[in-house]
Design a binder for these strands. Sequence first.
DNA 1: CGGTATCCTCATTGATACTG
DNA 2: CAGTATCAATGAGGATACCG
Lengths: 123, 123
Amino acid sequence: MSDTDRLPTWCAGNNWCAITATASLVGKKWHPVIIDRLLRNGALGFNDLQTEVDGISSKVLSESLDDLEEKRLVNRDVVNDKPVRVEYSLTELGESLEPVVRSLAEWGQKHLEPAEDESASLV
Amino acid sequence: MSDTDRLPTWCAGNNWCAITATASLVGKKWHPVIIDRLLRNGALGFNDLQTEVDGISSKVLSESLDDLEEKRLVNRDVVNDKPVRVEYSLTELGESLEPVVRSLAEWGQKHLEPAEDESASLV
DNA sequence: CGGTATCCTCATTGATACTG
DNA sequence: CAGTATCAATGAGGATACCG
């Protein structure tokens, strides 16, 4: 019931529907970071991932991972039973987000960072 | 003080800093739609914009516009004094977001929409 | 026309603690 | 190691009404 508003009814056939939907994916604060980490490092365990992201609580990481898994962007593989060892990795769909993430990163690097501090020239 | 966490300290020199910053821009639910509308239509008045977006309240539109203006993505021009006539348009910086928005849209169209409903063929 | 002002609800985050 | 449980705090989003 709560997921009926995921794709609003006014999201007819126009492409900003896809924009909104995608933005709600990568705009979830931690999602792009997690995806980035996974793109860079490949498979990571839960705590490794938490260390990599640095600043996220285990609860939020767990929820984010659930969300990303549900959306088929990450795989969760139990690679060992005892002691428990889990590895998170990107699915093909998740990896297909790379250009999107890169586009975000490039725009941000080009337009956002210099705006905050004009005293330093480009490195 | 509350804006000290806009760019978290752990956002060192890695590019996911830019990712996060950009994602927080275009991930604001209505922002990408507004930008899309402005990209398509050019300059729009407040109420026109509200009609275009369809579903946004004047309060949220107003706040979004403030936010976008503050980030130098949209211009607010008073083109007439009495009666008041205001036009919102994208700045160059705002227009430079087009590839980002397109990248979001393309990914969403390619990967998101077919997954939700496989019964209907493309229109 | 172009907004503000309230007030309210719900989603998201986060800290801390605890478990298999 | 890999999470879940709880609870508090924050804030974005929305409905409605009103103002210059």
